[in-house]
């Protein structure tokens, strides 16, 4: 539980809010923390909130995509919320389109998306 990113719990949804640009080891640490907690808390959804980030490098993006696939294999869904315009644009230019990963504009929408409440 030594990760730099706190993982909160809201019902059966885990929420990880990234507050600063993470190094490669931090983001890998977050990945294993989340995968562990999904089972531990019997979570159905995971939200990664990146709204505070104005950059996201290719390693970070790829790891998030991997994380989404792995979370799915453990029986839950992952959504990335709050991607900023600049981040979205540079990700697209790098060809990192997060195909198959759910996205939402903010935490609230993301929660609604994962809990199936809709809007």
């Amino acid at each position: 539980m030594a990760g730099r990113v706190a993982i909160l719990r809201q019902g059966r949804v885990l929420i990880a809010s990234l507050q600063e640009a993470l190094g490669d080891s931090d983001i890998l640490g977050l990945q294993s923390d989340i995968l562990r907690d999904v089972i531990r808390h019997r979570a159905t959804g995971v939200i990664v909130d990146v709204s505070a980030l104005d950059v996201l490098d290719s390693f970070g993006t790829r790891t998030l995509a991997d994380m989404a696939a792995a979370v799915q294999l453990r029986g839950a869904r992952l959504a990335i919320v709050g991607i900023q315009p600049d981040v979205a644009f540079s990700m697209v230019l790098m060809g990192l389109t997060l195909t198959g990963v759910a996205t939402a504009r903010d935490l609230e929408t993301g929660l609604a998306l994962l809990t199936g409440a809709g809007e």
Binding site: I80, I83, P85, A88, M91, V92, T97, T103, R105, G110
Partner: peptide
Amino acid sequence: MTAARLMGA
């Protein structure tokens, strides 16, 4: 369109 989707739209 892809960038819009990344932002949740």
